[in-house]
Design a protein around this nucleic acid. Sequence first.
DNA 1: CGGCGTCAGCTTACGGTGTTCACGGAAGAT
DNA 2: ATCTTCCGTGAACACCGTAAGCTGACGCCG
Lengths: 231, 231
Amino acid sequence: MREATLAEIKENARRQLAEQGPGGVSLRAIARDMGMTAPGLYRYFSSIGDLLNALKADLFTELAEAVEGASSALPPEDTDGRILTSLRAFRTWALANRPEFALMFGLPGPDRTADARVLEAARHFAATFFALFDRLLEERRFALPAEEGIPPALRAQLDAFATETGFTTDNVSYGALRVLLSSWVRLYGVVCMEVFDHLSLILGDMEPLFEAELQEVLTPLGVAYRPQEEP
Amino acid sequence: MREATLAEIKENARRQLAEQGPGGVSLRAIARDMGMTAPGLYRYFSSIGDLLNALKADLFTELAEAVEGASSALPPEDTDGRILTSLRAFRTWALANRPEFALMFGLPGPDRTADARVLEAARHFAATFFALFDRLLEERRFALPAEEGIPPALRAQLDAFATETGFTTDNVSYGALRVLLSSWVRLYGVVCMEVFDHLSLILGDMEPLFEAELQEVLTPLGVAYRPQEEP
DNA sequence: CGGCGTCAGCTTACGGTGTTCACGGAAGAT
DNA sequence: ATCTTCCGTGAACACCGTAAGCTGACGCCG
């Protein structure tokens, strides 16, 4: 019963987020829509920042599920297909849920994040892609860049990266981490610019650019690009 | 005299932005700091969104000046050096002015941008980099990708891009635009993730990654990478 | 059964916000 | 000297987040 109202609160918050954008989410409006008063919500969340963090965590798992759901429609052996659809699902979800994406990936307010739930959910989301990349490594699809080409300063950071993500520098080389990181940044950059509308004045439809980047990023990784099949 | 108070308002807004982050900028606080009352500000700006847009435009020109300033410290013939320092100046400014960057590049509120001043300033900022890239093309530093490799859908978008930016498909090929766009997205992505703290949990210091990306993006463009000289 | 503790939700209140409106006053132009 | 134009104020409205204290219902336990 408590769980139900808790879910209802987040549901309404989500609706407001979608309709008004982040910043348009207000405790009072949520309470109003639920036939409650604002202070009553404090039984469930210690502040509006707390609510937003909880929502944020939910959104990360929702996004992760969207990605995994799309990916799992393909046979497990089809690593190429799963990678392609996962990345496309990421973009699709982001575009279909722009305000949500802005909340998740935009600058947090003065209330510093550091929320355990959010971090956990974000980690799970990231792990989705790490797992796929791991398959790619196991299948030895591509030649890893030479370790000597990687500056020592970057290598040190990659160490932190590896320990944080569960990869270890034993089973995964610096070169692999380097490639993973730069591939992710590149594709993430396109989606980020698209959601935040940075090129709208310049580029009408960004899907061709995304698809082209997809191809250009994945091909050197040994992933066979396939055009998107339209249903 | 009107100009002076107008500047003072924006100055105070800027200070609040830097201290409290976007969203922490309030008309009443600005007025308070200036010994005025909030409604008085409406003689200068029609709303707080209007003020923020004006500020945004100023910030774009400030950023452009920071980039051009750093770049112009090098001799004009040194295209390589100017490109490197311009991109580094972009990152440096973004990191030194995170809330400002968030205002400029984050999602605008419900008040849709479409502000002429902002667009103009943003265009000028972008032109800074376009000019450098143009030099690169004139010097024919690198082999352009074949046009046939570029999907027709993307080509159509690149046409819009070209007409919008002053490049024409006469003096600049699809391949060049394709390279420019993907290079920019890649470097922008790193800075964006760094400012928005997306990898802070994973990567402590992102400067090595940025420098590595810089090298990897620019080398194929025929730009000789040089490590950053520390003063 | 009576008492007790826990909890949900309300009312009230405080201080903050953007914005509108009607007003005063100063300065410049005719 | 009057008229106009503009700057800035004060009061008001409608919101917002949050703290404190209260009421009422529920379950548990003696």
